[in-house]
Computed example of a mutant assay.
Amino acid sequence: MVRYSFCAGAIGVAIPQAVIPGLRDFLLDLSPSEVAASQLLTEFWEEAFNCSLTKSPAVNKGLCDGTNDIKRLKNPYTETSQLRVTNMVYKAAYAIAHAFHNALCLETNVTTQCDKLIKLKSNQIFSELKKINFSQNGYHVSFDANGEPVAAYEVVNWQTNESGSTEVVTVGSYDASLPVGKQFHINRNITWMEGGSQVPVSVCSESCPSGTRKVLQKGKPICCYDCKPCPEGEISNITDSPDCIPCPKEFWPNANKDACFPKPVEFLSFEEILSTILATFSVSGACLAIITAAVFFRHRTTPIVRANNSELSFLLLFSLTLCFLCSLTFIGPPSEWSCMLRHTTFGITFVLCISCVLGKTIVVLMAFKATLPVLSPNRLSLN
Protein backbone atom coordinates (compact mmCIF):
# COMPACT_ATOMS: atom_id res chain seq x y z
CA MET A 1 0.00 0.00 0.00
CA VAL A 2 3.02 2.28 0.28
CA ARG A 3 2.93 2.62 -3.51
CA TYR A 4 -0.39 4.48 -3.39
CA SER A 5 0.03 8.23 -3.00
CA PHE A 6 -3.42 8.77 -1.47
CA CYS A 7 -2.11 7.23 1.77
CA ALA A 8 0.27 10.18 2.29
CA GLY A 9 -0.61 12.03 5.46
CA ALA A 10 -2.00 8.99 7.27
CA ILE A 11 -0.91 8.49 10.87
CA GLY A 12 -1.06 5.45 13.10
CA VAL A 13 0.82 3.12 15.42
CA ALA A 14 3.12 0.26 14.47
CA ILE A 15 5.26 -2.41 16.07
CA PRO A 16 8.71 -0.94 16.82
CA GLN A 17 11.26 -1.51 14.10
CA ALA A 18 14.75 -2.82 14.85
CA VAL A 19 17.90 -3.99 13.12
CA ILE A 20 18.39 -7.65 13.97
CA PRO A 21 22.13 -8.30 14.17
CA GLY A 22 23.39 -10.47 11.33
CA LEU A 23 20.01 -10.86 9.64
CA ARG A 24 20.77 -8.68 6.61
CA ASP A 25 24.11 -10.38 5.99
CA PHE A 26 22.46 -13.77 6.30
CA LEU A 27 19.71 -12.89 3.82
CA LEU A 28 22.10 -11.30 1.32
CA ASP A 29 24.69 -14.09 1.44
CA LEU A 30 22.99 -16.13 -1.26
CA SER A 31 24.58 -17.59 -4.36
CA PRO A 32 22.65 -18.73 -7.47
CA SER A 33 23.49 -22.36 -6.64
CA GLU A 34 22.04 -22.04 -3.15
CA VAL A 35 18.97 -20.33 -4.52
CA ALA A 36 18.39 -23.04 -7.13
CA ALA A 37 18.30 -25.66 -4.38
CA SER A 38 15.22 -24.08 -2.80
CA GLN A 39 11.94 -23.71 -4.61
CA LEU A 40 10.93 -20.77 -2.43
CA LEU A 41 14.21 -18.90 -2.98
CA THR A 42 14.07 -19.69 -6.69
CA GLU A 43 10.67 -18.04 -7.00
CA PHE A 44 11.93 -15.03 -5.06
CA TRP A 45 15.11 -14.73 -7.16
CA GLU A 46 13.29 -14.93 -10.46
CA GLU A 47 10.72 -12.37 -9.34
CA ALA A 48 13.39 -9.97 -8.03
CA PHE A 49 15.71 -10.05 -11.09
CA ASN A 50 13.15 -10.90 -13.78
CA CYS A 51 15.13 -13.86 -15.05
CA SER A 52 14.86 -17.64 -14.91
CA LEU A 53 17.15 -20.16 -13.21
CA THR A 54 15.64 -23.09 -15.08
CA LYS A 55 16.73 -24.31 -18.49
CA SER A 56 13.31 -23.55 -19.99
CA PRO A 57 12.85 -19.84 -19.23
CA ALA A 58 9.41 -18.41 -18.94
CA VAL A 59 7.92 -16.05 -21.45
CA ASN A 60 9.66 -12.62 -21.54
CA LYS A 61 12.32 -13.86 -19.12
CA GLY A 62 15.90 -14.77 -19.99
CA LEU A 63 18.27 -17.06 -18.21
CA CYS A 64 20.04 -15.72 -15.16
CA ASP A 65 23.69 -15.28 -16.12
CA GLY A 66 25.08 -15.48 -12.57
CA THR A 67 26.03 -11.83 -12.39
CA ASN A 68 22.96 -10.86 -10.39
CA ASP A 69 23.98 -9.34 -7.05
CA ILE A 70 21.29 -9.42 -4.41
CA LYS A 71 23.20 -6.84 -2.34
CA ARG A 72 22.44 -4.20 -4.97
CA LEU A 73 18.76 -5.01 -4.88
CA LYS A 74 16.45 -2.31 -3.48
CA ASN A 75 13.22 -3.75 -2.09
CA PRO A 76 11.64 -4.57 1.30
CA TYR A 77 13.61 -7.81 1.40
CA THR A 78 16.94 -6.01 1.67
CA GLU A 79 15.61 -3.27 4.01
CA THR A 80 15.67 -5.40 7.12
CA SER A 81 15.16 -2.46 9.52
CA GLN A 82 11.50 -2.32 8.45
CA LEU A 83 10.84 -5.97 9.42
CA ARG A 84 8.70 -5.07 12.41
CA VAL A 85 6.85 -8.38 12.81
CA THR A 86 10.10 -10.27 12.25
CA ASN A 87 11.60 -8.48 15.24
CA MET A 88 8.68 -9.64 17.39
CA VAL A 89 9.31 -13.25 16.26
CA TYR A 90 13.01 -12.70 17.03
CA LYS A 91 12.21 -11.63 20.59
CA ALA A 92 9.67 -14.46 21.00
CA ALA A 93 12.32 -17.02 20.05
CA TYR A 94 14.70 -15.58 22.61
CA ALA A 95 11.90 -15.61 25.23
CA ILE A 96 11.37 -19.33 24.65
CA ALA A 97 15.12 -19.89 24.80
CA HIS A 98 15.37 -18.09 28.13
CA ALA A 99 12.45 -20.14 29.47
CA PHE A 100 14.23 -23.39 28.48
CA HIS A 101 17.48 -22.13 29.97
CA ASN A 102 15.83 -21.27 33.29
CA ALA A 103 14.10 -24.66 33.41
CA LEU A 104 17.22 -26.70 32.57
CA CYS A 105 19.94 -24.72 34.31
CA LEU A 106 20.72 -23.96 37.90
CA GLU A 107 22.78 -20.84 38.41
CA THR A 108 25.00 -20.38 41.43
CA ASN A 109 27.26 -17.55 42.43
CA VAL A 110 30.18 -19.14 40.58
CA THR A 111 28.95 -21.48 37.87
CA THR A 112 25.87 -22.48 35.93
CA GLN A 113 24.96 -26.16 35.76
CA CYS A 114 22.58 -27.38 33.05
CA ASP A 115 21.02 -30.80 32.69
CA LYS A 116 19.97 -31.21 29.06
CA LEU A 117 18.60 -34.69 29.62
CA ILE A 118 15.66 -33.56 31.69
CA LYS A 119 12.30 -34.17 30.02
CA LEU A 120 10.32 -30.97 30.30
CA LYS A 121 6.57 -30.58 30.15
CA SER A 122 4.73 -27.74 28.47
CA ASN A 123 3.38 -26.35 31.74
CA GLN A 124 6.96 -26.09 33.06
CA ILE A 125 8.00 -23.99 30.08
CA PHE A 126 4.89 -21.89 30.43
CA SER A 127 5.61 -21.30 34.12
CA GLU A 128 9.20 -20.23 33.37
CA LEU A 129 8.03 -18.10 30.48
CA LYS A 130 6.01 -15.91 32.83
CA LYS A 131 9.11 -15.22 34.92
CA ILE A 132 11.53 -14.14 32.16
CA ASN A 133 13.06 -10.69 32.34
CA PHE A 134 15.78 -9.83 29.85
CA SER A 135 16.85 -7.28 27.25
CA GLN A 136 17.67 -8.28 23.70
CA ASN A 137 18.70 -6.09 20.80
CA GLY A 138 17.92 -2.94 22.76
CA TYR A 139 14.41 -4.02 23.80
CA HIS A 140 13.24 -5.22 27.19
CA VAL A 141 11.13 -8.39 27.35
CA SER A 142 8.94 -9.28 30.34
CA PHE A 143 5.34 -10.20 31.12
CA ASP A 144 2.91 -8.89 33.72
CA ALA A 145 0.52 -10.86 35.93
CA ASN A 146 -1.91 -11.22 33.03
CA GLY A 147 0.77 -12.59 30.71
CA GLU A 148 0.89 -9.40 28.66
CA PRO A 149 4.13 -7.69 27.58
CA VAL A 150 4.64 -4.00 28.19
CA ALA A 151 2.87 -2.01 25.44
CA ALA A 152 5.45 -0.24 23.25
CA TYR A 153 4.59 1.15 19.83
CA GLU A 154 5.91 3.63 17.32
CA VAL A 155 3.82 6.49 15.97
CA VAL A 156 4.29 6.41 12.19
CA ASN A 157 3.39 8.89 9.51
CA TRP A 158 3.12 8.17 5.79
CA GLN A 159 5.11 10.95 4.10
CA THR A 160 6.07 11.76 0.54
CA ASN A 161 9.83 12.02 0.05
CA GLU A 162 11.75 14.15 -2.45
CA SER A 163 11.50 11.51 -5.16
CA GLY A 164 7.70 11.53 -4.93
CA SER A 165 7.32 8.08 -3.40
CA THR A 166 5.57 7.38 -0.10
CA GLU A 167 7.53 6.11 2.88
CA VAL A 168 6.62 5.25 6.47
CA VAL A 169 8.41 7.62 8.86
CA THR A 170 8.56 7.19 12.63
CA VAL A 171 7.46 10.47 14.24
CA GLY A 172 6.98 9.43 17.86
CA SER A 173 6.52 6.61 20.32
CA TYR A 174 4.29 5.21 23.04
CA ASP A 175 5.78 3.29 25.97
CA ALA A 176 3.46 2.14 28.76
CA SER A 177 6.40 1.49 31.08
CA LEU A 178 7.13 5.22 31.43
CA PRO A 179 5.42 7.43 34.06
CA VAL A 180 1.96 8.81 33.37
CA GLY A 181 2.18 11.91 31.19
CA LYS A 182 5.42 10.82 29.51
CA GLN A 183 4.21 7.68 27.78
CA PHE A 184 3.23 9.42 24.53
CA HIS A 185 5.94 11.41 22.77
CA ILE A 186 6.18 13.10 19.35
CA ASN A 187 9.74 13.93 18.23
CA ARG A 188 9.27 14.85 14.56
CA ASN A 189 6.94 17.03 12.54
CA ILE A 190 3.87 15.28 11.15
CA THR A 191 2.97 15.78 7.50
CA TRP A 192 -0.76 15.74 6.91
CA MET A 193 -2.83 15.43 3.77
CA GLU A 194 -1.32 17.06 0.65
CA GLY A 195 1.87 17.89 2.54
CA GLY A 196 0.22 20.36 4.92
CA SER A 197 1.60 21.08 8.38
CA GLN A 198 -1.74 22.09 9.95
CA VAL A 199 -3.82 19.47 11.70
CA PRO A 200 -6.88 18.72 9.52
CA VAL A 201 -10.34 19.13 10.96
CA SER A 202 -13.19 16.68 10.62
CA VAL A 203 -16.00 19.24 10.71
CA CYS A 204 -17.29 21.67 8.13
CA SER A 205 -17.81 24.44 10.71
CA GLU A 206 -15.45 26.22 13.05
CA SER A 207 -15.67 25.47 16.76
CA CYS A 208 -18.20 27.56 18.65
CA PRO A 209 -16.49 29.73 21.30
CA SER A 210 -17.70 30.25 24.84
CA GLY A 211 -20.84 32.33 25.05
CA THR A 212 -22.46 30.58 22.09
CA ARG A 213 -24.20 27.27 21.42
CA LYS A 214 -24.28 24.91 18.47
CA VAL A 215 -27.33 24.88 16.23
CA LEU A 216 -27.38 22.16 13.58
CA GLN A 217 -27.88 23.26 10.00
CA LYS A 218 -31.02 21.78 8.52
CA GLY A 219 -30.41 19.21 5.81
CA LYS A 220 -26.65 18.97 6.46
CA PRO A 221 -24.47 16.46 8.34
CA ILE A 222 -24.14 16.63 12.10
CA CYS A 223 -20.68 18.18 11.78
CA CYS A 224 -22.18 21.29 10.14
CA TYR A 225 -23.67 23.81 12.53
CA ASP A 226 -24.07 27.50 13.30
CA CYS A 227 -22.93 29.30 16.43
CA LYS A 228 -25.77 31.23 18.07
CA PRO A 229 -25.22 33.61 21.02
CA CYS A 230 -26.76 32.56 24.31
CA PRO A 231 -30.08 34.26 25.18
CA GLU A 232 -30.34 36.85 27.93
CA GLY A 233 -29.56 35.49 31.38
CA GLU A 234 -27.76 32.35 30.11
CA ILE A 235 -24.12 31.45 29.52
CA SER A 236 -21.90 28.71 28.05
CA ASN A 237 -18.37 28.35 29.41
CA ILE A 238 -17.12 25.50 27.17
CA THR A 239 -16.26 25.25 23.50
CA ASP A 240 -18.88 23.69 21.19
CA SER A 241 -21.53 23.74 23.90
CA PRO A 242 -24.84 22.25 22.71
CA ASP A 243 -26.90 24.27 25.22
CA CYS A 244 -26.66 27.37 27.37
CA ILE A 245 -27.21 27.28 31.13
CA PRO A 246 -29.05 29.99 33.12
CA CYS A 247 -27.24 32.02 35.75
CA PRO A 248 -28.24 31.50 39.42
CA LYS A 249 -30.36 34.01 41.28
CA GLU A 250 -28.67 37.30 42.09
CA PHE A 251 -26.23 36.67 39.23
CA TRP A 252 -26.18 37.75 35.60
CA PRO A 253 -23.89 37.01 32.64
CA ASN A 254 -20.97 39.15 31.62
CA ALA A 255 -20.62 40.81 28.22
CA ASN A 256 -19.15 37.68 26.60
CA LYS A 257 -21.82 35.43 28.18
CA ASP A 258 -19.22 32.92 29.32
CA ALA A 259 -19.39 33.54 33.09
CA CYS A 260 -21.85 34.68 35.78
CA PHE A 261 -21.02 37.35 38.32
CA PRO A 262 -23.03 38.85 41.19
CA LYS A 263 -25.42 41.62 40.31
CA PRO A 264 -24.21 45.00 41.59
CA VAL A 265 -26.32 46.49 44.39
CA GLU A 266 -27.78 49.80 43.18
CA PHE A 267 -29.59 52.05 45.65
CA LEU A 268 -30.35 55.70 46.36
CA SER A 269 -27.79 56.95 48.89
CA PHE A 270 -28.19 59.89 51.24
CA GLU A 271 -25.24 61.66 49.60
CA GLU A 272 -27.07 62.13 46.27
CA ILE A 273 -28.97 65.32 45.42
CA LEU A 274 -32.17 63.44 44.62
CA SER A 275 -32.08 61.84 48.06
CA THR A 276 -31.66 65.22 49.72
CA ILE A 277 -34.62 66.69 47.81
CA LEU A 278 -36.78 63.63 48.55
CA ALA A 279 -35.90 63.68 52.25
CA THR A 280 -36.62 67.43 52.47
CA PHE A 281 -40.08 67.05 50.95
CA SER A 282 -40.79 64.01 53.10
CA VAL A 283 -39.85 65.69 56.39
CA SER A 284 -41.61 68.93 55.39
CA GLY A 285 -44.84 67.11 54.57
CA ALA A 286 -44.69 65.13 57.81
CA CYS A 287 -44.12 68.35 59.79
CA LEU A 288 -47.09 70.05 58.12
CA ALA A 289 -49.31 67.07 58.94
CA ILE A 290 -48.16 67.09 62.58
CA ILE A 291 -48.71 70.88 62.88
CA THR A 292 -52.20 70.52 61.44
CA ALA A 293 -52.94 67.70 63.87
CA ALA A 294 -51.70 69.87 66.78
CA VAL A 295 -53.96 72.75 65.69
CA PHE A 296 -56.94 70.40 65.44
CA PHE A 297 -56.16 68.97 68.86
CA ARG A 298 -55.86 72.47 70.33
CA HIS A 299 -59.32 73.42 68.96
CA ARG A 300 -60.94 70.00 69.26
CA THR A 301 -63.94 71.40 71.20
CA THR A 302 -64.85 74.00 68.60
CA PRO A 303 -67.89 73.40 66.42
CA ILE A 304 -65.91 73.44 63.15
CA VAL A 305 -63.57 70.67 64.32
CA ARG A 306 -66.39 68.63 65.75
CA ALA A 307 -68.43 69.09 62.57
CA ASN A 308 -65.41 67.92 60.51
CA ASN A 309 -65.48 64.49 62.18
CA SER A 310 -62.42 64.90 64.39
CA GLU A 311 -61.74 61.14 64.77
CA LEU A 312 -61.35 60.58 61.02
CA SER A 313 -59.38 63.81 60.69
CA PHE A 314 -56.82 62.78 63.30
CA LEU A 315 -56.57 59.33 61.70
CA LEU A 316 -56.09 60.87 58.27
CA LEU A 317 -53.38 63.24 59.52
CA PHE A 318 -51.62 60.30 61.23
CA SER A 319 -51.66 58.21 58.03
CA LEU A 320 -50.42 61.20 55.99
CA THR A 321 -47.52 61.62 58.41
CA LEU A 322 -46.58 57.95 58.02
CA CYS A 323 -46.88 58.20 54.22
CA PHE A 324 -44.44 61.12 54.13
CA LEU A 325 -42.00 59.37 56.43
CA CYS A 326 -42.32 56.06 54.54
CA SER A 327 -40.36 57.49 51.60
CA LEU A 328 -37.28 57.77 53.84
CA THR A 329 -37.07 53.96 54.05
CA PHE A 330 -36.34 53.84 50.29
CA ILE A 331 -33.08 55.76 50.79
CA GLY A 332 -29.89 53.94 51.79
CA PRO A 333 -28.47 50.45 51.19
CA PRO A 334 -31.10 47.71 51.08
CA SER A 335 -31.24 44.97 53.68
CA GLU A 336 -33.62 42.13 54.44
CA TRP A 337 -35.51 44.14 57.11
CA SER A 338 -35.55 47.40 55.17
CA CYS A 339 -36.97 45.70 52.08
CA MET A 340 -39.79 44.14 54.10
CA LEU A 341 -40.44 47.38 56.00
CA ARG A 342 -40.65 49.50 52.87
CA HIS A 343 -43.45 47.66 51.16
CA THR A 344 -45.36 46.78 54.33
CA THR A 345 -45.33 50.30 55.77
CA PHE A 346 -46.18 51.95 52.49
CA GLY A 347 -49.06 49.56 51.78
CA ILE A 348 -50.65 49.92 55.24
CA THR A 349 -50.32 53.71 55.51
CA PHE A 350 -51.50 54.33 51.97
CA VAL A 351 -54.59 52.13 52.39
CA LEU A 352 -55.31 53.78 55.74
CA CYS A 353 -55.07 57.24 54.19
CA ILE A 354 -57.36 56.37 51.30
CA SER A 355 -59.82 54.75 53.72
CA CYS A 356 -60.00 57.91 55.84
CA VAL A 357 -60.59 60.09 52.77
CA LEU A 358 -63.25 57.68 51.57
CA GLY A 359 -64.90 57.69 55.03
CA LYS A 360 -65.02 61.49 55.19
CA THR A 361 -66.44 61.58 51.66
CA ILE A 362 -69.22 59.15 52.60
CA VAL A 363 -70.07 61.24 55.68
CA VAL A 364 -70.39 64.40 53.54
CA LEU A 365 -72.56 62.61 51.00
CA MET A 366 -74.82 61.30 53.74
CA ALA A 367 -75.13 64.82 55.17
CA PHE A 368 -76.19 66.29 51.83
CA LYS A 369 -78.70 63.55 51.16
CA ALA A 370 -80.37 63.79 54.54
CA THR A 371 -83.91 65.45 54.53
CA LEU A 372 -85.54 67.56 57.25
CA PRO A 373 -88.60 66.05 59.01
CA VAL A 374 -91.97 67.47 57.77
CA LEU A 375 -94.47 68.50 60.48
CA SER A 376 -98.15 67.51 60.08
CA PRO A 377 -100.62 70.45 59.36
CA ASN A 378 -102.92 69.21 62.06
CA ARG A 379 -100.28 69.81 64.63
CA LEU A 380 -99.73 73.43 63.64
CA SER A 381 -101.44 75.95 65.94
CA LEU A 382 -101.82 79.70 65.88
CA ASN A 383 -100.96 81.85 68.79
Rank of each mutant, 00 (worst) to 15 (best):
S5E: 14
V13H: 05
I20G: 00
L23R: 04
F26Y: 13
A36L: 12
A37M: 11
S38I: 07
L41Q: 04
E43S: 15
F44Q: 10
W45A: 05
A48W: 02
S52Y: 02
L63Y: 04
T67E: 11
N68V: 11
N68C: 13
D69G: 04
T80V: 14
S81P: 01
Q82S: 14
L83G: 00
R84N: 13
V85G: 07
N87R: 08
H98I: 04
H101M: 05
N102A: 13
S122E: 15
N123M: 10
F126K: 15
I132R: 04
S135A: 13
Q136V: 03
G138K: 03
S142F: 05
D144L: 08
A145D: 13
E148T: 12
A152H: 08
N157Y: 04
S163N: 14
G164Q: 04
E167I: 10
E167T: 09
V168N: 03
V169K: 07
H185Q: 13
N187L: 09
N187A: 15
T191A: 12
E194M: 10
G195A: 11
G195F: 14
G196Y: 03
S197D: 14
V201R: 12
V203H: 14
V203T: 15
S205D: 05
E206Q: 14
E206S: 15
T212G: 01
V215P: 02
Q217E: 15
C223S: 12
C224V: 09
C227K: 01
C227G: 06
E234H: 10
E234V: 01
T239K: 07
S241T: 01
C244I: 01
C244A: 02
C247E: 00
C247F: 03
E250G: 07
A255Q: 10
F261K: 09
K263H: 02
E266N: 11
E272T: 15
L274H: 09
S275I: 05
S282K: 03
A286Q: 01
I291W: 05
I291E: 02
V305G: 00
R306E: 10
L312Y: 12
S313Q: 14
F314N: 01
F314M: 13
L315K: 08
L317C: 07
S327G: 04
L328R: 01
T329D: 02
P334M: 01
E336R: 08
S338Y: 00
C339R: 07
H343G: 06
T344A: 12
T344M: 11
F346K: 03
F350I: 09
L352V: 09
C356T: 14
T361E: 07
I362V: 15
M366C: 12
K369W: 13
A370T: 13
L372P: 05
L382M: 08
N383S: 13
